[in-house]
Design a protein around this nucleic acid. Structure first.
Length: 408
RNA sequence: GGGUCGGUGCCCGAGUGGUUAAUGGGGGCGGACUGUAAAUCCGCUGGCUCUGCCUACGUUGGUUCAAAUCCAACCCGGCCCA
């Protein structure tokens, strides 16, 4: 059928993707000496790329390394509609400026201008990467072209898509422009003449749409390679920014490591297979040790082995020596007292320094016993501090994870 | 366009004139516990340098001593009809 599920996302384009169509295309490309054009579309709807995306990028990189051309489509136009896939409600539409800013940070996170050794994609080798924005062809479409596009699909076909079917069935609104999304992103495949498209298994509808549209425009339909979806930190739902269960590529080593070492046991193996090249059989059987090995490997791939090891040590001391006076002191972020108006009451201080999002919340946290100053519990929200000299150099702690060293 | 039902705090969802930021659940945060997590138990979950004062139940007005709760207009949505 031309769409295949990859069972693993590892460092070989075809490994574990048992599909004769893909094999045929790879062989054909080789015999003709023509690299395949491998499409991967990403909508810059947020500012962070997370590990769930990196499955796709790892695979894309594998194609690059095998000599093919990665065509990375920044969905700057489609981002403004919002992919309805997996959504139970209409997305908020984004502004052009916001989308462009997100696009920039995406490229940096993927390795543009970064150390090539840790870059997710190969930005260096000529011919291996094309970065395209789909506003390039979509923004210029006139109404006749849009009508032609709409004519290629039917309401019935659209409603066959699970997300739309669910929403329609439950009486949740579906805006007409959302029907346009699959068509527009499918048209991207036409515009760039993709031989192959990578996507998560949830992208099947969209990828298939690309095939239909290519056929409609007299092109050979792309091959769709669908990769598994990474479960999020909760171990249940897919990793997704809106669910708040992500690990961002931009996160520092400590935060990345400490999130990863806590994922539920049930998904540790998924993380290992999808995000690392480690041999499962060679890893410790003890679940806790396995988690740590996984967290270390993934963190190291992004931040280097040294930083990952340091993060592991810090994470350990944070938990063990939660008193705050431990080895992790050097890693404690600083918070300036410059914006604090003295005399300052304790609850106001927490908010002013950014540890809590409001002074009311700070008051509650203090009353709940979650706040410490230099390891000593702060129990009176109204405790008054007269000036910076009383606080400078001390470590303010909220819960087990949030530390701030106060500086003038 | 007509009819009808509805718009409540981060989300879902009670509440239908009367102390009180407003039941409950989810999520989140904090505490205890543990090999991390989960599970469990407990507490918190609008804002404000706060023993009090503000702002809140789609929007704007109105009725009333008193409104999320009644009325009107408007905006948005579901369903049915056209």
């Amino acid at each position: 059928m031309g769409i295949s599920l990859g069972s693993r996302a590892d460092s070989n384009p075809s490994k574990n993707v048992a599909d004769q169509h893909l094999a045929a295309r790879l062989a054909e490309a080789e015999s003709q000496g023509r690299p395949l054009r491998v499409k991967l579309g990403i909508d810059p709807t947020g500012s962070d790329i997370h590990l769930g995306h990196s499955i796709l990028f790892r695979k894309l990189r594998a194609f690059q390394d095998a000599g093919h051309t990665a065509v990375l489509i920044i969905g700057d136009f489609t981002a403004r509609i919002g992919d309805p896939t997996g959504k139970s409600a209409t997305r908020v539409q984004l502004g052009a400026a916001e989308v462009e800013a997100n696009a920039e940070t995406y490229l940096v996170q993927l390795g543009l201008g970064q150390d090539p050794a840790r870059a997710l994609l190969d930005f260096e080798t000529p011919g291996r990467l094309e970065v395209r924005r789909n506003s390039e062809w979509l923004a210029a479409m006139d109404l006749p072209a849009v009508i032609d596009l709409l004519g290629t699909s039917t309401v019935g076909q659209m409603l066959a898509k699970e997300d739309f079917a669910n929403r329609y069935g439950s009486g949740t609104p579906i805006s007409l422009h959302e029907f346009l999304y699959p068509l527009l992103q499918g048209y991207d495949s036409v515009a760039i003449e993709a031989d192959l498209e990578l996507g998560g298994t949830d992208q099947k509808f969209n990828v298939a749409m690309g095939r239909d549209l290519q056929r409609h425009h007299g092109l050979r339909p792309q091959f769709g390679l669908l990769l598994p979806i990474l479960p999020g930190l909760d171990g249940v739902q897919k990793m997704s920014k809106s669910l708040g269960n992500t690990v961002g590529l931009a996160e520092d080593a400590l935060s990345m490591y400490s999130k990863l070492e806590k994922v539920p046991d049930a998904v540790v193996n998924d993380y290992l297979t999808l995000l690392t090249d480690l041999d499962l059989a060679a890893l410790p059987v003890n679940p806790r040790e396995r988690q740590k090995a996984m967290a270390l490997a993934i963190t190291a791939a992004r931040h280097g082995v040294a930083a990952a090891t340091a993060a592991q040590a810090d994470a350990g001391s944070l938990v063990a020596g939660a008193a705050g006076a431990g080895a992790a002191e050097a890693e404690v972020p600083e918070a300036s007292l410059a914006t604090v108006n003295f005399p300052a009451k304790a609850f106001y201080l927490l908010a002013a320094v950014g540890v809590c999002s409001s002074s009311s919340e700070a008051r509650r946290q203090i009353q709940a016993g979650g706040v410490k100053l230099d390891g000593e519990k702060l129990s009176d929200p109204n405790r008054e501090f007269s000036g910076t000299q009383e606080l400078a150099g001390k470590v303010l702690q909220l819960g087990k994870k949030t530390f701030r060293r106060l500086v003038e």
